[in-house]
Design a protein around this nucleic acid. Structure first.
Length: 816
DNA sequence: GAGTTTGAAACT
DNA sequence: CAGTTTCAAACTC
């Protein structure tokens, strides 16, 4: 089964991939039929995804290292190397490898001796006890040793090879928990064949003793767990995400499962090296089909998967950044638009679901990460993958459940800013799985702040599996400079987005099963949230902009409580490029308000709708593009996607090889404008028409004199605008400065303005004085000239009195 | 600001 | 897929 189906991958714009860091290895073709089932084999095709790999990445990976030998359909294996181990060239790999099928030892192996020694010098000779939980309840204590090569060998006790082959569904996976000398705990779930040793290669600690380079771990919190699931057995589905990767799964005895590896790249805050990538395995159903074994190798951050005969392992790379999240772009945004597609599912849980549930423990502790996990579920009912096999008390995890019988599934992981409880929700008849994310309270989160320990069994409820394929691309919107305007207040109670919660609720659905849009093609920045008035079953497709501000607060909260994030994180995330543009220039750039009158803003005529945004401060009438009309909006989105699956994808994308970087994906169809007016989408996007255009009389080409003229004019106009803007800004500044300087003088009384002492009374008195002079001149029968002189002289005297009294605090008094 | 033009979106 | 209609933005006056 593929991590990302070709279909999905094709929907992802190139630009997105350029900025995203999810790395997925290509799966061998042989696994397609097994994993995807009959429904959609196309999804199983390998989908290369670009990854933003740091130059010097530190990689902690768990890969399935399936043996080259073939595996039987029943899940038994004749492998000599057991389940997975993948190594990278980096010394910070975390390797989990069962050594032999007959062996029951687990080996934790540090990547290099030097690294382990530098960080944990005591470990070389230490002997630790490893608690193994076998069969769900049984705990086995196994000693482990750190070998000279820094491998921690966990020796299973009382494990019988091949015993797991008859394991009934619901049987938990053996789990090994160990603590490294550096205070780092590893939880190893032996989902593979019992008796196989697991080798954990400790991540490179570098020159920073005590620091742990783990998933989302901070230096200040070395005590954490890293749960590694062995995916040897094909009937198990361990999924590990985040620092604590715990897995427990109920096994379908009749079906072998593929081994899936998920790699999470993460950049440590203080690590000198690049992001650490975690590769964890997941066993998926392969329907007993034998496949050629592929070996997963991680080379400089890249994972080369190795699949076992029956269950080709898959590798999913999940990138996560601790401090400088700008460089770690995990989110798989289906759209490369300023707004991210964020899918948050919230729905009421359907208890007692007969369907299998898969919980995905996740404690990414970082925002701005997007994890896309495709999971192939077995046909056997009631499969449950959870971490309850471990005795560890873990933090609430963000879990995304994806289910489906015989169909590849995408598992969506929502790294949340704060520990959140996750309630997995089954939506009968819906293709999507939903998870209710319950934001943990601040008090509860602080206790485990920074702790990577997660336990899906505590808070994550079993998810329900649906019958059809589920694709969920869940780009977690990175911390961006966000709009601070909330479109409209949410009125629904309960699962309503609030600015103070770190969770974002997502996807629609139960109430609208018929309008389930393809999540990959949702409008950019769409967030699915519970729709007001629809209760738990309603979901709203929220524009990312609507959520970004929520995330802003979430990031802040995270930084203060999680311990993983720092103000640096926030600042860095805030600078994340937004659709290739700096958020500083785009975040506060308001979208031009629409003026829709008849479309209800639910057609692509409306730019707001077309961009996946709510109408805000628009001039539209009868607008339905808001949360209050989410039902209609969702239908409209669905309709648009039905007409054009790429309706919400940006039209301007990258061109072909050797062509211009930007080109209109569809091309214009201009007839009269000559493609030199904004009617033309190409011209409007400031790109030239290409061969895809169907325009007539096009003048929007490179050598077009008209175009050059227009460009010059446009440039000149732009210069003028800039100059005017600068002048206005300067003038405003001067005015402001003037007011700033004059105001204190006025208030202080040191330099009173004329109006402060030329009061009405003063003016009246002055006039009376002048009239008195006129009357006297008239009584004395003075000539007019003399009278005028007398009046003027009196006026002068009045002015002198006024001026003399201006400096006094008292009201000036003028006496004739 | 009203009216016209234009081309994408929607519809048939 | 092509032709037509609808629609809202762009444009003109």
């Amino acid at each position: 089964m593929d991590v990302v189906s070709p279909e999905l991958n094709s929907l992802l714009p190139d630009e997105i991939m350029d900025t995203e860091a999810i790395v997925m290895d290509d799966d061998p073709p042989s696994e397609s039929p097994a994993a995807s089932g009959q429904s959609q084999p196309s999804d199983d095709a390998p989908v290369p995804m670009e990854t933003d790999v740091p130059a010097v990445p530190e990689i902690v990976s768990l890969c399935s290292d399936a043996p080259p030998t073939q595996r039987t359909q029943a899940g038994t294996t004749s492998t000599t190397t057991g389940s997975t181990l993948c190594s990278t060239t980096s010394a910070t790999q975390l390797l989990l490898t069962p050594s032999t099928a007959s062996s029951s030892s687990l080996t934790l192996r540090p990547a290099t001796a030097s690294t382990l020694t530098s960080t944990t010098p005591k470990t070389t000779s230490s002997l630790a006890r490893v608690s193994l939980t076998s069969g769900g309840l049984q705990k086995l204590s196994a000693p482990f040793t750190l070998s000279a090569n820094h491998q921690i060998i966990l020796n299973k006790v009382a494990s019988s090879p091949g015993a797991d082959t008859t394991r009934s569904p619901g049987t938990t996976t053996p789990t090994t928990t160990t603590t490294t000398p550096g205070g780092q705990k590893f939880m190893v779930t032996a989902i593979g064949k019992s008796g196989q040793p697991i080798v954990l290669q400790l991540p490179h600690t570098g020159s920073k003793p005590g620091s742990v380079q783990g998933l989302g771990e901070a230096k200040a919190n070395p005590q954490h767990f890293k749960v590694v699931t062995r995916g040897v057995r094909t009937d198990l589905k361990p999924i590990m995400v985040g620092q604590a990767v715990s897995s427990a799964s109920q096994v379908s005895t009749l079906q072998a499962q593929q081994l899936k590896t998920v790699q999470i790249a993460k950049k440590t805050q203080v690590s000198s090296a690049g992001p650490i990538k975690f590769v964890f395995t997941k066993a998926v159903n392969n329907k007993g089909l034998t496949a050629q074994t592929s070996v997963s190798n991680v080379i400089t951050g890249r994972v080369l998967s190795t699949s076992s005969p029956v269950t080709p392992p898959r590798t999913i790379t999940l990138s996560e950044t601790l401090s400088s999240s700008s460089s770690s772009k995990i989110a798989i945004s289906p759209l490369k638009s300023p707004s991210k597609l964020t899918v948050v599912s919230v729905a009421s849980q359907v208890p007692n679901s007969p369907q299998k549930s898969v919980s995905l423990p996740l404690n990414m502790a970082h925002l701005g990460h997007q994890i896309l996990v495709q999971q192939s579920t077995a046909t056997s009912p009631a499969k449950v993958v959870s971490s309850h096999s471990t005795a560890q008390t873990m933090k609430p995890v963000q879990t995304v459940t994806v289910g489906g019988v015989g169909a590849p599934q995408f598992k969506t992981i929502f790294p949340l800013s704060t520990p959140s409880n996750v309630q997995q929700i089954q939506v009968p008849g819906s293709r999507f799985h939903y998870v209710r994310l319950v934001t943990a309270t601040t008090g509860s989160s602080t206790g485990q702040a920074g702790s990577p320990i997660t336990n899906s069994s505590m808070t994550a409820k079993p998810l329900v599996v649906n019958t059809t394929q589920v694709r969920m691309s869940v780009p977690i919107v990175p911390a961006q400079t966000m709009k601070q305007v909330v479109p409209k207040p949410l009125t629904s109670s309960g699962q309503v987005l609030t600015t103070q919660t770190q969770q974002r609720l997502i996807m629609p659905a139960t109430s609208l099963p018929q309008i389930q849009p393809n999540l990959t093609n949702l409008p950019p920045g769409t967030v699915l949230a519970p729709a007001p008035g629809s209760g738990n079953m309603g979901y709203a497709v929220l524009p990312a902009q609507y959520v970004t501000q929520l995330q802003q607060s979430a990031y802040v909260t995270l930084a203060s409580s999680s311990g993983f994030s720092t103000p640096t994180d926030i600042q860095t995330q805030a600078r994340l490029p937004l659709n290739g543009l700096s958020t500083s220039g785009t975040a506060f750039r308001p979208r031009k308000p629409c003026n829709c009158t008849k479309s209800q803003c639910l057609k692509l005529y409306c730019d707001c709708f077309a961009n996946g945004e709510f109408c805000q401060s628009c001039n539209c009438t009868n607008c339905f593009n808001n949360l209050e009309h989410e039902t209609d909006r969702a239908k409209a989105i669905k309709a648009c996607l039905d007409r054009n699956p790429e309706a919400f994808k940006p039209k301007i994308g990258k061109g072909k090889e050797g062509e211009s970087d930007r080109r209109h994906s569809k091309g214009c169809n201009c007839k009269r404008s000559g493609c030199l007016k904004n009617y033309c989408e190409c011209y409007e996007a400031k790109i030239m028409c290409s061969s895809t255009c169907k325009c007539v009389g096009c003048k929007n080409f490179e050598e077009s004199p008209e175009r050059k003229t227009l460009m010059h004019l446009a440039d000149a106009a732009e210069v003028r605008v800039q100059q005017q803007t600068a002048a206005k800004t300067k003038l405003s500044s001067q005015i402001s400065d003037l007011l700033t300087r004059t105001t204190p003088a006025i208030t202080s009384g040191g330099g009173r303005m004329p109006y402060t002492f030329v009061t009405k009374e003063v003016a009246e008195v002055t006039c009376e004085c002048l009239l008195e002079q006129a009357e006297q001149a008239e009584l004395n029968q003075q000539p007019q000239a003399t009278a005028e002189r007398m009046i003027l002289e009196e006026f002068g005297r009045c002015l002198m009195r006024i001026i003399s009294s201006a400096g006094k605090t008292d009201c000036p008094s003028i006496n004739c």
